[in-house]
C-alpha cells in the first residue's frame, strides 16, 4: 500500500496535457466550429448541382477553389456535403451518448437502491446486452420496424446503456455499503438527496470518462449502419452514407470516399485519445 501511494506521489506530471491530446482537442474544436460557423457565413446547399464541374478533383489534384474538396458525379460540392454530414453525425452521436448515459445511470442507481428482484432483472438485462453484439440487435430492430430516423436515434440512444448502468450500480453499491452514504442515511438524509447531491457528483467523473470512451464507438456504429444503407437516408447525409455512396466511385473519384473516411477516422481517433487520457488521469474504471 505505502509503496503504491508513494509511486503515485512521484508521478505528478500527469497534470501536463500531452501534445497528442492537445492536437486531438484542437481537431475536435476545429470540427465543431466548422460545423457551427460555416453554415452561418456561406449557405451550405448539399443538393446544389454544378453540372459543369462533375467529378472535379480537390485542390492539389487539379481542382480549383470553387470546390476545394472536389465534386461528386452529380457535381455536388464535397466540402459542403462533408460539413453537413459531420454536423449530422456529431449531433446524432452526442444526442445518443447523452440519452444512453442518462438512462443507463438512472437504471444503475435505481437497481442499487431498490435491490431485490429489480436488481436481479437489471443485472440479467445487462448480461444479456453484453453477450449479444449490438449491431445485430440494431439490424433486427431495423428489419422488423422498417427504417426510419426515430427508430435509428432510439437504437443509437440504447447503445452502451449497460456500461453506465453497470458502473453506476457498482459505484452506488460501493458507496452504500460502507462510506458516506451509510453515514448520511444514519444522519436522517433522504435517499434522493443522498443520490443526487452526494453520490452522483462523486461518480460523475467516471461516468463522464465512460461517455468519452463510448462516443467514438457511437460514431462508428452510426457511420457503419449508414454506410450499409440502414441508417441515415438521403436526402439527409451523414459521414457513413456519404462514404457508402463514394464507395462506388473509388476508380473515378476517390476523393468522394476519402474525405468522409478521413473525417470519421480523425474524429473517432481524437475522442479516443482524449478518453484514454481522461481515464489515465482519473486512474480507474
Amino acid at each position: 500500500m505505502s509503496i503504491a501511494t508513494m509511486v503515485r506521489k512521484g508521478g505528478r506530471d500527469f497534470l501536463l496535457v500531452p501534445p497528442g491530446v492537445l492536437l486531438a482537442m484542437f481537431w475536435l474544436l476545429a470540427c465543431l466550429s466548422l460545423v457551427i460557423v460555416l453554415p452561418l457565413v456561406s449557405h451550405l446547399d448539399v443538393t446544389a448541382i454544378d453540372l459543369r464541374a462533375r467529378l472535379s478533383p480537390p485542390i492539389g489534384f487539379g481542382g480549383d477553389w470553387a470546390h476545394p474538396l472536389g465534386t461528386d458525379d452529380l457535381g455536388r460540392d464535397v466540402l459542403a456535403r462533408l460539413v453537413a454530414s459531420l454536423r449530422t453525425s456529431l449531433a446524432i452521436a452526442l444526442g445518443a451518448v447523452i440519452i444512453s448515459a442518462t438512462i443507463g445511470t438512472l437504471i444503475g442507481i435505481l437497481a442499487a437502491h431498490l435491490r431485490g428482484w429489480v436488481d436481479q432483472v437489471v443485472v440479467a438485462a445487462v448480461d444479456a446486452q453484453v453477450s449479444v453484439p449490438f449491431i445485430i440487435i440494431s439490424l433486427t430492430l431495423t428489419a422488423i420496424f422498417g427504417n426510419n430516423l426515430y427508430l435509428f436515434i432510439f437504437i443509437l440512444g440504447m447503445f452502451g446503456w449497460e456500461r453506465y448502468t453497470r458502473l453506476a450500480r457498482a459505484m452506488t453499491m460501493a458507496s452504500r455499503g460502507r462510506g458516506y452514504v451509510l453515514a448520511m442515511s444514519t444522519l436522517g438524509f433522504s435517499w434522493p438527496r443522498i443520490y443526487l447531491r452526494h453520490v452522483l457528483p462523486n461518480i460523475a467523473s467516471t461516468l463522464l470518462v465512460t461517455a468519452t470512451i463510448t462516443f467514438p464507438e457511437v460514431i462508428l456504429l452510426e457511420t457503419s449502419l449508414s454506410f450499409l444503407g440502414l441508417g441515415i437516408q438521403p436526402p439527409m447525409t451523414s459521414l457513413g452514407n456519404m462514404l457508402g455512396f463514394g464507395r462506388s466511385y473509388l476508380l473515378t473519384g476517390w476523393w468522394i470516399a476519402v474525405a468522409p473516411g478521413l473525417a470519421i477516422f480523425l474524429c473517432a481517433l481524437s475522442v479516443s485519445i482524449i478518453g484514454d487520457w481522461a481515464r489515465s488521469v482519473i486512474g480507474r474504471i
Binding site: R178, G179, Y180, L182, A183, M184, T186, L187, H198, N202
Partner: peptide, 16 residues
Amino acid sequence: MQMVFQHPRDSLDPLM
C-alpha cells in the same frame, strides 16, 4: 443514536 464509521475519509463526501 448516531454512528461513527471505520474509514473516516470514506464517510465524508469528498467533494464538499
